[in-house]
Amino acid sequence: KFNKERVIAIGEIMRLPNLNSLQVVAFINSLRDDPSQSANLLAEAKKLNDAQAP
C-alpha cells in the first residue's frame, strides 16, 4: 500500500511548478525514508508550492 502511495506522491511532487530542485529532492528523500508519511509529505509539498507561487 505505502509503495503505491509513495510512487503517486513522488509523481505529484515532481509536477509542482513552484518548488525548486532542492525542495523536490528533499521531499522525495523524506518519502523514501518513511513511505507511510506519503499523504502528509504530499500535503506539505503542495502547501509550500502554493506559498511560493508568483
Rank of each mutant, 00 (worst) to 15 (best):
K1T: 05
K1E: 15
K1L: 03
K1W: 14
K1I: 14
K1A: 14
K1Q: 15
F2M: 15
F2G: 15
K4V: 04
K4H: 09
K4R: 03
K4N: 13
K4Q: 14
K4F: 02
K4T: 13
K4Y: 06
E5F: 05
E5L: 11
E5A: 08
E5Q: 06
E5T: 04
E5M: 12
R6W: 15
R6L: 15
R6A: 15
R6V: 15
R6M: 15
R6S: 15
R6N: 14
R6K: 12
R6E: 15
R6T: 15
R6F: 15
R6Q: 15
R6P: 13
V7F: 13
V7S: 10
V7I: 12
V7T: 12
V7E: 15
V7K: 14
V7Q: 14
V7H: 11
I8H: 05
I8V: 07
I8R: 11
I8K: 10
I8T: 03
A9N: 03
A9E: 03
A9F: 14
A9R: 02
I10W: 03
I10R: 03
I10H: 03
I10M: 12
I10F: 05
I10E: 14
I10Q: 07
G11Y: 11
G11W: 12
G11T: 07
G11M: 13
G11S: 09
G11H: 08
G11K: 11
G11C: 15
E12K: 13
E12H: 09
E12D: 06
E12S: 06
E12V: 13
E12F: 14
E12A: 13
I13Y: 01
I13T: 00
I13C: 02
I13G: 00
I13M: 04
I13N: 00
I13E: 00
M14I: 13
M14F: 04
M14L: 08
M14Y: 05
M14K: 11
R15N: 09
R15I: 06
R15G: 06
R15Y: 04
L16W: 01
L16T: 01
L16K: 00
L16C: 03
L16V: 00
L16S: 01
L16F: 04
L16R: 00
L16E: 00
P17W: 04
P17T: 06
P17K: 10
P17L: 07
P17N: 06
P17E: 07
N18P: 00
N18K: 01
N18G: 02
N18L: 02
N18R: 02
L19F: 01
L19A: 00
L19K: 00
L19N: 00
L19T: 00
L19H: 01
L19Q: 00
L19P: 00
L19V: 01
L19G: 02
N20T: 13
N20K: 10
N20V: 06
N20Q: 07
N20W: 05
N20G: 06
S21L: 13
S21D: 05
S21V: 11
S21C: 14
S21I: 11
S21G: 09
L22D: 12
L22C: 14
L22V: 10
L22S: 12
Q23T: 03
Q23F: 02
Q23V: 03
V24T: 06
V24I: 12
V24L: 10
V24R: 07
V24G: 01
V24C: 10
V24H: 02
V25R: 12
V25E: 09
V25G: 10
V25F: 14
V25Y: 09
A26M: 14
A26R: 08
A26I: 12
A26N: 09
F27C: 04
F27H: 01
F27I: 06
F27P: 01
I28N: 02
I28D: 02
I28C: 09
I28A: 03
I28M: 11
I28G: 01
N29W: 04
N29S: 13
N29R: 11
N29V: 08
N29P: 01
N29T: 13
S30V: 09
S30I: 12
S30W: 11
S30R: 13
L31D: 01
L31T: 02
L31H: 01
L31C: 03
L31K: 00
L31Q: 01
L31N: 00
L31R: 00
R32V: 15
R32C: 15
R32P: 05
R32F: 15
R32G: 14
R32K: 14
R32L: 14
D33I: 13
D33C: 12
D33E: 10
D33S: 10
D33V: 12
D33N: 09
D33H: 08
D33M: 11
D33A: 09
D34H: 14
D34W: 07
D34N: 09
D34I: 04
D34T: 05
D34S: 07
D34Q: 08
D34Y: 07
D34F: 09
P35F: 13
P35K: 04
P35S: 07
P35I: 07
P35N: 05
P35V: 05
S36Y: 09
S36W: 08
S36R: 08
S36H: 06
S36I: 07
Q37P: 03
Q37V: 06
Q37I: 09
Q37D: 06
Q37C: 08
Q37K: 11
Q37A: 12
Q37G: 10
Q37F: 09
S38Y: 15
S38Q: 05
S38K: 04
S38N: 14
S38E: 02
S38T: 11
S38W: 15
A39H: 09
A39P: 05
A39M: 14
A39K: 12
N40E: 09
N40F: 12
N40R: 11
N40M: 11
N40A: 12
N40S: 13
N40G: 09
N40Y: 10
L41V: 13
L41D: 01
L41N: 02
L41R: 05
L41H: 03
L42D: 00
L42A: 04
L42H: 02
L42C: 04
L42S: 03
L42K: 03
L42I: 06
L42T: 06
A43F: 06
A43T: 13
A43E: 08
A43W: 07
A43N: 09
A43Q: 09
A43C: 13
E44K: 06
E44D: 06
E44F: 12
E44A: 11
E44H: 05
A45L: 02
A45D: 00
A45K: 00
A45F: 03
A45G: 01
A45P: 01
A45R: 00
A45C: 02
A45V: 02
K46C: 08
K46F: 07
K46E: 03
K46I: 10
K46V: 07
K46M: 08
K46Q: 07
K47P: 01
K47A: 10
K47Y: 06
K47Q: 10
L48W: 05
L48Y: 03
L48G: 00
L48P: 00
N49K: 00
N49G: 01
N49L: 01
N49M: 03
N49P: 01
N49T: 01
N49V: 02
D50R: 08
D50V: 07
D50I: 08
D50P: 00
D50T: 06
A51L: 10
A51D: 11
A51S: 08
A51F: 09
A51E: 09
A51P: 01
A51R: 11
A51Y: 12
A51K: 10
A51G: 05
A51H: 07
A51N: 10
Q52I: 04
Q52T: 05
Q52W: 04
Q52R: 05
Q52L: 06
Q52P: 02
Q52C: 14
A53C: 13
A53K: 11
A53S: 08
A53P: 05
A53L: 06
A53G: 11
A53W: 05
P54R: 08
P54G: 12
P54N: 10
P54K: 09
P54V: 07
P54Y: 07
P54S: 09
